[in-house]
Design a protein around this nucleic acid. Structure first.
Lengths: 300, 300
DNA sequence: ATCAAAGCATGCACTAAATTCATGAATTAG
DNA sequence: CTAATTCATGAATTTAGTGCATGCTTTGAT
């Protein structure tokens, strides 16, 4: 008999945000009375207390906390669906919500996005870099429509495709003692300062695939947010960094930095694009993947 | 201005299911007129046609198809939330929806579920074996609360924990020529009939980890649904099967089957339990994982 | 202690939205 | 060509949500 309506979810969220009925009512453009009636009815219908009245405070019960989690999950999806439908209405194609999980991916993404925007003028692109959990979670949770990541996941209802092969190299400044080496060995980094993006060590290939297997750790480890600053630091001899070769090459001339192979065989990496399988047929989504793949061949 | 309500989603689904307004109206306990008014208003508010009127048929437009996919995703979640809240109301703890991705996991699961049910009398357990996509997708999509799988996935908003280590062995019937071998080599299976669960070859460890690396394929491959029949077949000399050692051992005496190591080192496997990280704190969920882990130590 | 301020609950009146009823128009099948 | 089926529409009706006025309880300041 109890039908969970969108209003109910909205109310639960608003009350949680503002901590009081009166304040929540304002946000919802309702009177306090209307809210009071509404929650009364909801609680009656469900047969559960959603809040305990402690003095004049409303504290969510266990059921309330659960309902809140449902609301926080579903309301954004409804909101997005509305936006999407409105876009249909205006003849727009929609918004492509792209998530990226790796820092250098961003540099690559920019190159693909600009021709894409030109080719699909009625599709907007939105890029997200932060996720509550992982990018894959965001894809499953319909927070994004396309994921750029070095870590694909097959057989899951998602579809991944490699769009860029590259070599992860060590970047050293001008005149660095390793600048002329054909390749560097792990122990040669024991006395170096390693500059990296601020992510856990187990997400840095230079650790997982190069240093840790050899039991080596660099003398210092310095996290830096942006690629530009990172390379400025490297150029000025403050440390070395591990980056894609194509990215290092772009800065090579300007900053005088050099790319050196990591180990004799080098570290090979791939960037993947992931989408929800069910949406593989959407033209403007498919087109992005195609464009990215074409881009891959361009650079050889 | 257009608020997407639960009713709208329900209508879209009902119309899709029944193919006509009149039939859909019946399911929704409404008159055909009410539905007609409702969809008119919705389309007006959204500014998009959701169906095209072809004769007296309603065919979903692109927007309609999108709305339907949203509805099919969200309505079940709302329904489940209601059920969950109703359980709260009745003092029950809830339903633990378990998904399993591997056939022998089922046998193992039964052993854990029965003490769990005894310990948590007010929690129901529901086991699902079929998913639209993968088990991980079902976990992300809130179709299940707990996943039993041999393929974990870390760093995703999910939490996986190994609860059983076992060896995958070859099971042969009484008097089979390989029954007394300490271990079997890939080429010794070239003339055998291999019996397995009906899953793609790339999900069978005996292929991916044993036969395919050696470039061997068995003479025949026979898919069988159930473990019992599978072992009956093995016992009667119709073929050989790859199963967990503990499972083979349980049938060893009764059917006279023998477990033989695959390769010199054997194939080691693990079963994992996966949950959504955000729900790691739920007591009856946590308790299941704990119980499973305790079970692991029991058997050594 | 006392009083004012702030917050929630509730009964009643009102309004707006959803539903039905009655009917018409269009399509399809025999 | 008719009968049956289906969707659309306008007016009538019912229902559910909302607001107002008000009372009760808690909280904090004097």
């Amino acid at each position: 008999m109890a039908q969970l309506e969108r209003t109910h979810l909205a109310i639960v969220r608003a009350v949680d945000q503002h901590g009081s009925l009166t304040a929540a009512a304002e946000q919802l453009h309702l009177t306090q009375s209307a809210l009071s009636h509404a929650i009364r009815k909801l609680e009656d219908q469900l047969g559960v207390a959603i809040w305990t009245r402690e003095g004049r405070r409303l504290r969510p019960t266990q059921a309330g906390a659960y309902l809140l989690s449902v609301a926080n999950r579903l309301i954004p999806q409804l909101t997005h669906a509305e936006a999407r439908l409105r876009q249909f209405a205006q003849g727009e194609r929609g918004t492509l919500r792209i998530g990226i999980e790796c820092h250098p991916c961003y540099q690559w993404l920019l190159k693909v996005v600009s021709p894409y925007l030109a080719e699909w003028p009625d599709v907007d692109v939105d890029v997200k870099q932060e996720f509550q959990f992982s990018g894959i979670g965001a894809l499953f949770g319909h927070e994004i429509d396309l994921l750029v990541t070095p870590d694909p996941l097959f057989r899951t209802g998602l579809q991944f495709e490699a769009v860029l092969d590259y070599e992860q190299v060590l970047v050293v400044g001008p005149g660095h003692r390793l600048a002329d080496t054909p390749c560097v060995q792990p122990d040669q980094l024991a006395q170096e300062t390693l500059i990296s993006y601020p992510v856990p060590i187990d997400r840095l290939d230079i650790y997982t695939q190069f240093l840790l297997p050899a039991g080596i750790r660099p003398k210092r480890h310095k996290p830096i947010e942006t690629t530009d600053i990172m390379l400025q630091m490297v150029a000025s001899g403050r440390g070395v960094a591990a980056l894609p070769r194509w990215l290092a090459n772009e800065y090579a001339e300007r900053l005088g930095v050099t790319a050196v192979r990591l180990g004799e065989r080098g570290i090979d990496k791939q960037i993947f694009l992931g989408i929800r399988q069910a949406e593989a047929g959407i033209d403007y989504l498919h087109a992005f993947v195609e464009l990215a793949r074409a881009h891959r061949n361009h650079r050889g």
